[in-house]
Simulated assay, not measured.
Amino acid sequence: MPIKMGSVRCAGALLGLLWLSGCNAGGAEEGLMESSTQEASSLSQASEGAAEPLVCICGATRYNLAANSLGFRCTQAEQRARLSLESQAAATCPTGYCNVVETFGPCVREPDGRYRGAVHWAISCCQ
């Protein structure tokens, strides 16, 4: 599962705020600490079930994955193919994957008017 760096940055900023509030740095008032505690509780509930960020050392072996999917536009078809690739990558690399190189195959219009888009990933597994 890919790590969303924006969420990690927000969590770090929130934890820093909680630490400062807990130490009463800068004269944080009780209302701010209660608000911060509620936000931290919401953050932990929102991230339940998500993988914790771990250090990944990429292996040297490369794996080639491919998927295609249908959509009403090429971008939609390619996004659906990416979802399939995420599942394939997770099954190929249970400890996580890294060094993803994404390439696109042709996107062609099918007889029913939808588009078929192909996406290819070359990945390494975390060790």
Rank of each mutant, 00 (worst) to 15 (best):
S47P: 00
E48I: 12
G49Y: 05
A51Y: 00
E52T: 03
P53C: 04
L54K: 11
V55I: 10
C56F: 01
I57W: 00
C58L: 04
A60V: 08
A60G: 11
R62Q: 09
R62S: 08
N64A: 11
L65W: 02
L65H: 04
L65C: 08
A66I: 12
A67S: 15
S69F: 00
L70N: 06
L70T: 11
L70H: 02
G71K: 02
G71W: 00
F72H: 05
T75Q: 11
Q76C: 10
A77P: 07
A77S: 10
E78V: 12
A81T: 10
R82N: 11
L83W: 10
S84R: 07
L85I: 05
E86S: 13
Q88F: 03
Q88P: 00
Q88A: 05
A89R: 01
A89C: 08
A90C: 10
A90V: 11
A90W: 03
A91D: 09
C93T: 02
P94T: 01
P94M: 01
P94L: 00
P94W: 00
T95S: 10
T95H: 08
G96N: 01
G96A: 05
V100F: 04
V101N: 08
T103M: 04
G105F: 12
G105W: 10
P106H: 15
C107A: 13
C107G: 11
C107H: 07
C107Y: 09
R109W: 00
R109I: 07
P111D: 12
P111C: 13
D112S: 09
D112L: 07
G113H: 06
G113Y: 01
Y115Q: 13
Y115T: 07
G117L: 15
A118E: 14
V119P: 09
H120P: 03
I123W: 00
I123G: 04
I123N: 03
S124D: 01
S124V: 01
